[in-house]
């Protein structure tokens, strides 16, 4: 793997001390900082957006501060938009689906990359095809499928759908990592007479913590923001999720954009928190994994 190492010559001895490099570093920070501003601005923008009236949202400059902050938008989001009521549904549906997806995907990836069997390429292929289904063409078949199972208007229908449709991408991402990770530890464990389950749960899972966190973040965001499946499969208010709350502000002829902004703002907070926690796991995980067992 590291065959190219030897080709590196010792040309640049003290590259990090020269003046040129300092200027380069300064420029780099300038660029990085500018990009960061561009990436963080949407949150600020969304916040102002959530405090505006429709008249301000359209027609005035998007940079403009809200003239008369409409804090009432948040009240509307909470009460009329049902954010208070849908919040818990969003949380547990998202969490359950993320755990199922990541766990199943890890099982599959482990079996495909670490275990010996003839059909592994075929099974992998089966999962990869799952990447390619446009969800809207699956909508009607899935609906009649769940109808037959009596799962329409049941949270299981969306949890299973989220899991199934996120499995392929999760497996793909895991796969890239499993191939990269050294197998020595696992091989040693086999020598020591470890069972496969112990290897999986006690060696492989902890070692892949960074990528598990990564896929968990990606899955979480997908599930949290999904609305096509919820809208189609769920009709009772008691099972609806936050994205449906947004629908409450889209009227026949009039859409209340400020309230949508407020709903979006409220609903981004939990993902933001979860995201910061999980993305720290990316760092922690590797530290734990690299300790030789």
């Amino acid at each position: 793997m590291t065959k190219s190492n030897s080709s590196l010559k010792t040309k640049n001895k003290s590259y990090n001390n020269s003046l040129g490099n300092r200027i380069g570093l300064g420029l780099l920070y300038l660029v990085l900082g500018a990009v960061a501003l561009f990436q963080i601005y949407p949150l600020v923008w969304l916040f102002f957006f959530s405090l505006k009236t429709n008249a301000e949202v359209f027609g005035t400059s998007p940079f403009a501060l809200p003239k008369d902050p409409q804090w009432g938008n948040y009240l509307k989001a909470w009460v009329d938009g049902g954010v208070g009521a849908y919040f818990f549904n969003s949380v547990w549906v998202t969490v359950t689906a993320v755990i199922l997806t990541v766990l199943f995907a890890s099982f599959v990836t482990f079996a495909i990359t670490r275990m010996d069997w003839k059909l592994n390429k075929l099974v992998l292929g089966l999962f990869m095809v799952g990447l390619m289904v446009p969800i809207h063409s699956a909508l009607i078949p899935l609906f009649s499928f769940f109808l037959d199972l009596n799962l329409i208007d049941h949270p299981l229908s969306i949890i299973l759908t989220y899991t199934a449709y996120n499995l392929p991408i999760t497996i793909m991402i895991l796969l890239g990592f499993y191939y990269t990770l050294p197998r020595e530890v696992e091989e040693a464990a086999v020598m020591d007479g470890c069972s496969v389950h112990r290897i999986f749960f006690q060696i492989t899972l902890p070692m892949t913590m960074p990528v598990i966190s990564t896929t968990a973040i990606i899955n979480m965001i997908y599930n949290w923001n999904e609305f096509v499946f919820v809208n189609t499969f769920i009709s009772s208010d008691k099972y609806k999720t936050l994205t449906v709350g947004i629908q409450n502000f889209i009227g026949q002829y009039l859409t209340d954009w400020g309230a949508i902004g407020a709903t979006l703002m409220i609903s981004i907070i939990p993902v933001l928190i979860a995201f910061f926690i999980l993305s720290n796991r990316i760092v922690d995980g590797i530290a734990a994994g690299s300790v030789k067992g």
């Binding site: 079996a111 999962f127 095809v129 699956a138």
Partner: peptide, 27 residues
């Protein structure tokens, strides 16, 4: 150890069933 058919099935079947039912049927 690493070619135990039962374990392979245990690890892959849950996901495979899900995919076959919810992705392949619609396809």
């Amino acid at each position: 150890v690493m070619s135990n058919k039962l374990i392979i099935a245990m690890y892959t079947l849950p996901a495979l069933i899900l995919i076959l039912a919810l992705v392949y049927v619609p396809i």
